[in-house]
Each structure stands twice: as C-alpha cells, then as structure tokens.
Simulated assay, not measured.
Amino acid sequence: MSQSSRKPRVAVVFGGRSSEHAISCVTAGSVLRAIDRDRYEVVPVGIATDGRWVLEADDPQRLQINGRELPEVDGDRAALMLAREAETTDLVVHESSQPPRTLGEVDVVFPLLHGPWGEDGTLQGMLEMSGVRYVGAGVLASAVSMDKAYMKIVLRDAGLPVMPSVTVTRRAWEADPQGCRERAAELGYPLFVKPARGGSSIGISKAHEPSELDDSLEEAFRHDSKALVEVSAEGGREVECGVLQALDGTAETSVPAEIRIGGDHEFYDFAAKYLPEEFTELDVPADLPDRTATLLRQYAARAFEAVGCEGLARVDFFVMPDGSLVLNEINTMPGFTPTSMYPRMWAATGVDYPALVDRLLQLALTRDTGLR
C-alpha cells in the first residue's frame, strides 16, 4: 500500500459471468453498506454477464432482490481496467470519446464473485499477477474448493468424512451413457446430481430412482460439463460452520447453525435460499450435543487448513441420524449478506457484520501476493 496518509482504496468486485451473478450483486450491496467510509475509500467494480468490467454506481439499494426480480451489473456503464505500473496497480476508467482517467492505486480487492470465473481461482490468479492484495482464498484453495470432485479427494486424504460419489463428464456421458448409469447405480438411490463447479444450488436435482438420472444429468450439464453424482444424506440435518482466519494465521470457528427447510422444498434449493417468501428457518446456534458441536468445529478448521484456505470459508455438514458427521462442501466466498448464514453465525459468536468486513480487509492488507 502507498505510504501516503490517504485511506486504503478498496475495490469491491461483484457480478461476473457465472449463473450466480445476481447473488454476487446482492452480497456486494450488503458489503458496500457495511464498509466504514471513514476508514476506507470504496470503488464499486461490476463485472457484467459478458465479462466486461465497469465502474458501477455506489448504490447498495439497486443491488437488492426485489420480489422475484434479481439485480445485475449495468454493463453500459464506463469500462474499467487494472493497469500495472512500475510499483503500483491502478484502476483506469475508459469512457467513449474521453481520454482514459485513473482512479488511483488499488490497495485491496474484496472479490464477491460466486461460482466460476471468480470464486474458482481465476480472478485470484489475475490479482496475483497484478500484485494486488485481496480478501479470501488464494488460487489453489479457490480452485480446489470450487471443484467438488477434487475437493472430496483433498478432504478425504485429510481424513475427513465425505459422501460417496462419482464424477460424470459430458464427454463420458455422450460416449457411454449406460456405463455412467451403472457407476451411479453402484452408489444406491436416491442420488443428488449437481454441477461439479457450481453453487447457490443452481442446476442441482434429486434422482429418486434410475429413471430420473438422465434428466438430472442433463440439468447439471446445462451449467457445467462435469457433474457430481452423490449419495443422498437421507435423514441428515444440514449444519454449517464459519471459519475466519485470525491475524496470526490460525483458523477460528463460529458456533454452528442449522438450516431447516419448510414448504414443498425437498432440499435447500435456490428458492429456499434466496426468495423472501419461502419458509426456511435458520437456527443459530444449532441445537447439537456439545460433543457433536465441538467435533464439527474441529472438522471445519481441518477442512480450511486442508485446502490451504485463507481469510474466510463456510464449511457445510450433514449430521446423520446416528449422530455421525459428513462434510458436504467448503465455500471460500459464502453468501455474505447480513442475513446469510456465515455472517449470522459470526454475529452469534461475537463478531458483528461491520466488524467482520473490517477484519477481512485488515487481514488482506497485511498479507503479500505471491507464494506465502
């Protein structure tokens, strides 16, 4: 960061090309509200659905979900780019019929992108190449955590319990559909089928019997060329735990919280997560035996360290009917509105939303880019 007395400049980056574009916008609106403008200078940076970077309006209200209308980045706004100079990386604005103008040095990026082309290590790699500090996981941890097939390999190797699954690529499905069906059948029905590199429950469906597998795979392939077919955690309770890195690098964990789904939802799908009229209840903290809660928090910290995560993560579990734990997935950029599970768990643990945002920015400002 510049040695001048100016406030650190934070680029809040949101939107993106993935199917989670709207949820990223909602998250950004909440973070823009929470950042202490007395301590930081904030630049909202939107990435349109076609990949264009624009200088967005600093208007959190526009980034809310309005009924069933989802927000999106205004791709017609002035174009923006990162320009690497000798010792700094600046934000440069390009407007038609106008010479380029610089907004100055970027001290830290708060990347609020969900899904591919943002949460998967691609943006992190670009920021590393540009020498810009950023909030959250690095390239490898982001990529491994986004790809659920590889995530399971890493977590299993770390001795953590995960659901049995098989990976089916679009190429394998087109070449040998019967072989793919047989591999899935060995797991036993019912099965969940999901895009391997997706999020927000987009593209996920439940195959109750073999006749439903084909349609479930086709739905997953609409969002990703690689699908994960996974044993259903029948009777399992969905419980999550937040992980937050301390300034000394250690992984701290929040109280766990449980998701209880109401209405006609068989699982925690997109509507249950984000649409206001749906009947989903969040128990913060979760009603768990002390021994189970302690073990779950230990597993969450181990998962965070196993993938080499930094900054923050939300680790999702199933608490099975016999009391055993199964780790479902790790999210390196979890939903981050004040009503999202991750901030609510930390609020219940003693870190409120503005303090959480500030802590992540301070942590990012203290670490260098490159190998660490």
Results as ranks from 00 to 15, higher is better:
361 L>I: 13
146 M>V: 04
137 A>N: 12
362 Q>K: 10
312 L>M: 15
306 A>I: 04
283 D>R: 13
329 E>R: 03
233 A>D: 14
156 R>V: 04
100 P>H: 10
117 W>P: 00
268 Y>E: 05
198 G>Q: 01
161 P>I: 12
351 V>C: 14
117 W>K: 02
220 A>C: 04
321 P>D: 06
235 G>V: 07
327 L>R: 10
181 R>K: 09
66 N>V: 13
341 M>Y: 03
173 W>M: 07
271 A>S: 13
97 S>D: 03
251 A>V: 06
137 A>Y: 01
201 S>C: 05
51 G>L: 04
18 S>T: 01
32 L>K: 06
189 Y>D: 01
23 I>G: 02
67 G>E: 13
9 R>P: 03
194 K>V: 07
304 F>A: 00
51 G>C: 04
127 L>A: 06
303 A>F: 09
331 N>Q: 12
97 S>Y: 12
371 L>I: 15
228 L>H: 02
41 E>S: 13
142 S>W: 10
351 V>R: 10
218 E>V: 00
20 E>W: 00
260 R>I: 12
156 R>K: 14
236 G>F: 04
90 D>R: 14
229 V>A: 04
162 V>D: 02
356 L>E: 10
141 A>R: 04
320 M>F: 00
141 A>N: 06
126 M>Y: 13
281 E>Q: 14
326 V>D: 05
132 V>G: 09
315 V>Q: 06
285 P>S: 10
76 D>M: 11
130 S>G: 03
123 L>W: 11
256 P>F: 05
27 T>V: 11
255 V>Q: 11
199 G>K: 02
333 M>W: 09
16 G>V: 00
286 A>Y: 06
317 F>E: 02
196 A>G: 03
165 S>Q: 09
20 E>V: 00
102 T>I: 09
339 T>L: 13
147 D>V: 02
66 N>L: 11
36 D>K: 09
283 D>H: 15
171 R>Q: 13
177 P>M: 08
283 D>Y: 14
317 F>L: 03
77 R>S: 09
130 S>Y: 14
131 G>R: 12
67 G>W: 13
351 V>N: 11
162 V>W: 12
253 T>H: 06
177 P>Y: 08
35 I>M: 07
191 L>T: 01
69 E>C: 02
7 K>V: 02
217 L>P: 06
161 P>E: 01
267 F>I: 02
186 E>V: 14
69 E>L: 12
4 S>A: 14
65 I>W: 12
94 H>C: 14
218 E>Y: 00
76 D>H: 10
149 A>I: 14
221 F>L: 09
205 S>E: 11
6 R>G: 15
281 E>L: 12
118 G>K: 07
153 I>L: 15
102 T>R: 14
126 M>T: 11
338 P>V: 07
